[in-house]
Design a protein around this nucleic acid. Sequence first.
DNA 1: CCAAAAGTGTTAAGTCTACACCCATGA
DNA 2: TCATGGGTGTAGACTTAACACTTTTGG
Lengths: 245, 245
Amino acid sequence: MKAEIIPNISVDCVIFGFDNTTKSLNVLLIERYLKLKDSEIPAVNDYVLRGFHTLDNETIDETANRVLKELTGLDHLYKKQFKVFGDPNRLMNEKDIIWAQHEHFNQRTITIAYYILLPTDVIQIEVNQYKPKWFPVNQLPELGFDHRKIINEAYADLKEKVLYKPIVFELLADKFTIKDLQDAYEAILGVEIDNRNFRRKLITKKYIIALDEKQVGVSKKPSQLYMFSKDVYQKIYKESYLISI
Amino acid sequence: MKAEIIPNISVDCVIFGFDNTTKSLNVLLIERYLKLKDSEIPAVNDYVLRGFHTLDNETIDETANRVLKELTGLDHLYKKQFKVFGDPNRLMNEKDIIWAQHEHFNQRTITIAYYILLPTDVIQIEVNQYKPKWFPVNQLPELGFDHRKIINEAYADLKEKVLYKPIVFELLADKFTIKDLQDAYEAILGVEIDNRNFRRKLITKKYIIALDEKQVGVSKKPSQLYMFSKDVYQKIYKESYLISI
DNA sequence: CCAAAAGTGTTAAGTCTACACCCATGA
DNA sequence: TCATGGGTGTAGACTTAACACTTTTGG
């Protein structure tokens, strides 16, 4: 029995990648391109998030995993289901309608949106059949459907969560420097952070563990590498009820 | 053109009410009862959350509003869409199957879950046709479908959010005492809070405003009433980036 | 020896924790 | 005048913010 597509339920993934070199928080997008035969200029030519319709025998998380596997080749990425976009008119601008006719989907679809965190360099986008491209979250191209809204809401959620959950680490390699951490926070929050205070604060944390290793291949003083211990973190933060409204 | 039900998409609402008298965080549930003609004992007799299927011309939020209007008579309650429950086998235990046959819904349904915050005493449950009942969140009755799971996840989300967002106030009347606030936090978090430190901390906040009013009708020293100013809160917290992981 | 980024210290202000008694009121 | 819960103060530990220079390294 082959699994059937559920036509009105989809999953869209906002893949955030932190680029350590440019210190930029990026979003992975694929092109949406359509040229009708009677026209010179393309009828649709913009970017969208990758998404799939859910199959009738899979969970929502599994749908998200399929999207991720296809686009990144990876399993087990950090992913957060953050909101449903279900406005009846969400796919109703001109290009979306042209596209929907061409792709033969028509009825109202609600989409369950996830965001995903990873360091950009763990995936090789060149070899992917969908030709995905990274765009800085603050310089997005023209976007199809309601995907600009989805990305903006994902980003807002990320900005909030990053302040009180240890999710920055998902944007970095397993071994990172304190500067990397700071760069990631600065890129996400769009603020400058005092380097001395930041180091002091973070190095004191028990779950940020100095390794017996330094950076290699840099033409300057190589910096100390650290790792994040989820286990230690969870032990410490089992119950800490600091009300900080 | 009459709006049609979307058969595979529903909205379920976890209505949390804080009862100031018993100092208990409660959940509003309705009974699910079914007696088949050939049997003495009811085939189904448990409690569930109230939910509706989404109509094809309404947003998800509007579906949630319909649920709330019906169950509480109120609009404009604080509501948070927190998670989608879409496991293909989520309605597959014995009673759920009997119930589904009886109610003529069968196919896989995904439900978009909200939680709602209000003070229990703003609604009169006795007059409602569905005979809803409050249950302390820590003493839930037997629950149908996957609603125990939904409630538990709603509660977990609430516990987390209450620490860094000003949502406790949604559980209290517009005018409240500092003790009320403390009781609400204690009920939600299941901890005891030092009264002196709590008062000091909260009274200092600019957005917690002392009124020219005291409690009336209490047979002891009447306490000072306060209100929460959302405006002041938002002005203060426009951008405060304290990383507290 | 130079360029580049890593790494470091101090002070003052503010916040958190722990702890126990007096006070104002209505009955 | 009493019972009840409202309301208060302090000291020590800790955390934060603001601020600029020295050190280490590879090339």
